[in-house]
Design a protein around this nucleic acid. Structure first.
Length: 209
DNA sequence: CGGAAGATCCACT
DNA sequence: GTGGATCTTCCGA
């Protein structure tokens, strides 16, 4: 497989959250923690995402145009990172999608580490590489493996510390869809098929599609 | 102002 | 399968 390290265009994230979430599969997150140690680079291929649609979506942090200190960056123009802290323990990373003030975003739920796995293992606090799926197979694990935290919240998607490369688009035939995880409280919105994953990939979070 | 629940993960049974 | 960790936000008193 040939993976392109060309940065995504400015237009990539200016589309709807649903289209962006689908198109993120197969793209690459490139994390370069600091410029003085370029060897610390980690590259992760996106395996699983979810779309959150903003004001009309009861599962979205932007439901009914809610605004809090935590979700401020969710209202930036498409093409910024929205990183939030959840359950008092974990971070989750989203790509803000669509026009400014609309609150759409794509949550990145799982990725396959394609470069820097040893660094990711260390960041996770593990002594050895876990079995497939346990290194970045979940939104909290992904952020820990890539050292993504509050400092990344609100950065532009082409920031040198955390940016998106084209990788390789995944064919429709290889995409599985289903309802989103952990949003049972969202009534009708909980049934919307806004979860996307590369079918059968071992890094997919549970429950598998 | 207190309690509850959350776009989660891990240890334990 | 269940519960704990413990930040952020919501809701009812």
């Amino acid at each position: 497989m040939s993976l392109s390290f060309k940065p995504v265009s400015a237009a990539f994230a200016r589309r709807s959250a649903k289209v962006v979430a689908r198109d993120l599969l197969g793209r690459l997150i490139v994390r370069t923690p600091n410029d003085s140690r370029p060897a610390e680079r980690i590259v992760a291929r996106i395996i699983e995402t979810e779309a959150y649609l903003g004001a009309p979506d009861r599962a979205s942090h932007a439901w009914n145009n809610r605004r809090t200190p935590r979700n401020a960056s969710l209202y930036l123009p498409g093409g910024h990172w929205y990183v939030y802290f959840i359950y008092g323990m974990h971070f989750c990373v989203n790509l803000v999608a669509g026009e400014a003030e609309t609150g759409g975003a794509a949550l990145i739920r799982a990725a396959e580490i394609v470069e820097g796995a040893d660094i990711a293992v260390r960041r996770r606090g593990l002594s050895a590489a876990p079995r497939s799926g346990d290194l970045a197979g979940g939104p909290g694990k992904l952020c820990k493996a890539l050292a993504i935290d509050r400092a990344m919240d609100g950065l532009a998607v082409h920031d040198s510390r955390l940016w998106l490369a084209m990788g390789q688009r995944v064919k429709d035939a290889d995409v599985a869809t289903g309802p989103r995880i952990g949003v049972g409280y969202a009534r009708q919105a909980a049934t919307w098929p806004l979860r996307f994953a590369i079918a059968g990939h071992p890094e997919m979070s549970r429950p598998r599609l």
